[in-house]
């Protein structure tokens, strides 16, 4: 037991060593003044700025606003997107009505609708959440649709012949079968959620980490700007890992999911 913990720690150190090496080179380059520290602040300075920002309200509040917008939009999109996808997969009439809309907007660069949403709803959380919602909706709809459509007919027939109701088939056949695809859609949507939330804040906002990063950039406080960028990178990484852990938990029963670790390349 103790030995395995030591092993885990050693493995973690070996994995993170490259980051430490790069930070070390970066720090020495900055300390030796080979580059202008105005353009490339030293890691120690950025760390100090990050500590400073985390102990105050600046990053916490703005990061909170961004996370709230991204996650609220994602949650709304998850709830409605799954039903939309199931509807498209189960009813050809609904599919015929919805598919041109989904097909046309799927490849639209989603931030393009931000100016329109600003026009309609002004700047603020409503606009941000709506932009995230509309962006996240599509991958979830498409993945749910594919998951439900791919359900083997034999399984549905078996359930029907054993007298399962439509509701039981929905919850016990279609939903579990589509669950891995729904999680794939959620993971794509999570990435979009952060990009769109931050883009919307950079384009026009009074709060949020996107605005904060830009504000520091314009004021020339670059160590704070780097610290704010670092905070959102870490937040996005943790959110992605949390979603992976959740999907691994929910898909424990699924044969394809034994020991997969998406995103980690080694």
């Amino acid at each position: 037991m103790a030995q395995s913990i030591v092993k885990v720690i050693i493995n973690a150190i070996i994995r993170l060593l490259p980051i430490a090496i790069v930070l070390g080179i970066w720090q020495s380059v900055a300390s030796l003044h080979w580059v202008d520290t105005a353009f490339l602040p030293a890691p120690v300075g950025i760390g100090r700025a990050l500590g400073d920002l985390l102990s105050g309200h600046e990053i916490r509040d703005n990061l909170g606003v961004t996370l709230f917008r991204a996650l609220a939009g994602l949650a709304l999109a998850a709830v409605s997107g799954v039903w939309f996808g199931v509807g498209m997969a189960r009813s050809w009439i609904f599919n015929a009505i919805a598919s041109p809309l989904v097909g046309a907007t799927y490849s639209l660069p989603k931030t393009a609708i931000v100016p329109l949403l600003i026009l309609w709803f002004g700047i603020g959380s409503t606009m941000g959440i709506l932009a995230v919602y509309l962006t996240c909706l599509l991958p979830i709809i498409v993945q749910t649709y594919h998951g439900v459509r791919a359900t083997p007919a034999v399984v549905i027939w078996s359930a029907q012949s054993m007298g399962a109701s439509a509701r039981q088939i929905l919850w016990q056949i279609f939903m579990p079968h589509a669950l891995p695809d729904i999680f794939t859609g959620l993971r794509i949507a999570l990435g979009f959620a952060f990009v769109v939330a931050i883009s919307a804040e950079m384009i026009a906002s009074t709060a949020g980490i996107g605005r904060l990063i830009f504000m520091y950039g314009e004021n020339g406080s670059y160590d704070y700007m780097f610290a704010a960028v670092a905070s959102i990178v870490i937040a996005a990484f943790l959110a992605d890992r949390a979603l992976l852990a959740l999907s691994a938990r929910c898909l424990r029963w699924h044969p394809s999911h034994a020991g997969t670790n998406l995103g980690a390349t080694a």
Binding site: R15, I19, V195, I232, V233, A236, F237, G263, A264
Partner: peptide, 14 residues
Amino acid sequence: DPFISLAFPAPKIA
């Protein structure tokens, strides 16, 4: 590997 793992989910627009 650690750089790719960290940067892959990051919102690059930031």
